[in-house]
Amino acid sequence: MSAAVNRDIRTAYLQLAFVVVFVLLGALIAAEKLVIKPIEMLADMAKRLGEGDLSARAARNRLPAEFVPLARAFNAMAAQLSQRERELIASNDRLTVMASIDMLSGLANRRGFQSRLDFEWMRAQQYGSDLALLMIDVDHFKLFNDTYGHLEGDSCLTRLGESLSGIAADTMGFAARYGGEEFCLLLPNTDVMRAAEIGEQVRAAVLRLCLPHITSSHMIVTVSIGVAATKPNESLRPGDLIEAADAALYAAKHRGRNNVVEHGVQAIETGAADMMMVASA
């Protein structure tokens, strides 16, 4: 009888151990599915978010009900961060644009012009096309400011900027205020003859504004324009085009102002810039 009782006790212990193992195994599986997996999923989403992936979202339909509020809060935070990033990018873009714009004339400033010149230079070099530049200077502008005051001087520059902007739009050009009373007009796919014609359009447009200037021999505001054009290549650099247009502008000033002077730039075998200057009609 004692042996039978002992056997029954051992059987009972084995059954109890089996039940305990089964329960523990079930609890482990349940914990894996209901607790560990959701935590790992949320941790993975948080890691992706921390690495900059603002599209990371927790799939609420794959989570136990107890984790849904946490997933909802996580997704809301991710959406807010994504919105903030878009706003920051937009603000940075606006600041970048503002940093390249001259607020007085509404045209690009010198920084914006230099960036565009570098771009158009590379593109013209790639396609073997012409690139022209007009340097435009207001004649006797210091006397204008001394006579009418700086507010009128600013108004004059604003009117000139508006006129130049319209011409740039008509000619597929890029207008900028180079500094002070000096403007420039970059003309892609334009040879020196066509650039000189556009220079005359600019000069005539300024005359049509009829801005009074009693200290000028013309009695109205006029501009002098230097024109340069070239086919960009490895022997030249963008600065050569600016220097050539500046030289032409200098010549226009010495020819009595209110005129347009062309300045051709060509690369020669030595790699230097061969300059040829011709006064326009």
Rank of each mutant, 00 (worst) to 15 (best):
S165H: 07
A205R: 12
C156H: 09
Q266V: 14
H140K: 10
P69Y: 04
P232H: 04
Q125G: 15
N92G: 05
M122I: 02
N233Y: 00
R7K: 12
L24M: 11
V138R: 02
R194L: 14
G264M: 10
L185Y: 03
R72N: 11
T215R: 13
S280E: 08
G161V: 03
M1S: 14
G271K: 06
M275N: 12
D102R: 06
E162W: 02
F144M: 10
A108T: 00
S224K: 01
L107S: 11
R72C: 07
N6G: 15
A176C: 13
H218C: 13
G239Y: 00
F174P: 01
N233S: 15
A78W: 01
W121S: 04
D154R: 06
V278C: 08
F119W: 09
E162I: 10
V221N: 09
Q126M: 07
V202Q: 02
S224E: 07
D146F: 04
R10A: 15
E269A: 12
D102M: 04
R237L: 13
R84M: 09
L160H: 01
Q126I: 03
I39T: 14
R257V: 03
R116T: 12
L42F: 08
N6C: 12
L133G: 10
D139N: 03
N92E: 14
V35D: 00
S224N: 01
H254W: 02
L207V: 02
V23L: 15
G26T: 06
F113R: 02
A196D: 05
T96F: 10
E243G: 03
L25G: 15
V206D: 05
A205P: 04
G239R: 04
R257D: 13
I39G: 10
D44I: 08
L133T: 01
M277Y: 09
Q83Y: 02
I29M: 13
I29W: 05
V227I: 11
A273E: 10
D240R: 00
E40I: 07
M122G: 08
G128Y: 09
V23Q: 12
S105T: 14
K33I: 12
A124F: 05
S82R: 12
I198V: 15
A176R: 03
A17E: 06
S235Q: 12
M1I: 06
S155Q: 15
K231W: 05
L133N: 01
S105M: 01
V97N: 09
L187N: 04
R194V: 10
N259S: 09
R57C: 11
A168N: 00
E182K: 00
I39M: 15
G256I: 05
T190I: 08
F174N: 06
A30T: 06
A251P: 02
A43D: 14
E234I: 06
K142H: 05
R123Y: 09
V192Q: 09
F74M: 11
E66F: 08
D170E: 12
G50I: 03
T158W: 01
M172I: 03
K33L: 14
G161S: 04
L151R: 12
I39S: 14
T11I: 05
K33T: 11
D102P: 06
V20H: 08
D154P: 03
M219F: 07
A124Q: 03
A228K: 00
K231M: 10
E66P: 00
K47E: 13
K33R: 13
M98N: 08
N6I: 06
A168I: 03
G180D: 06
Q80T: 13
R237P: 00
R203S: 05
R86K: 13
C156E: 08
P69H: 11
L107C: 09
D240A: 07
R86P: 05
F113V: 09
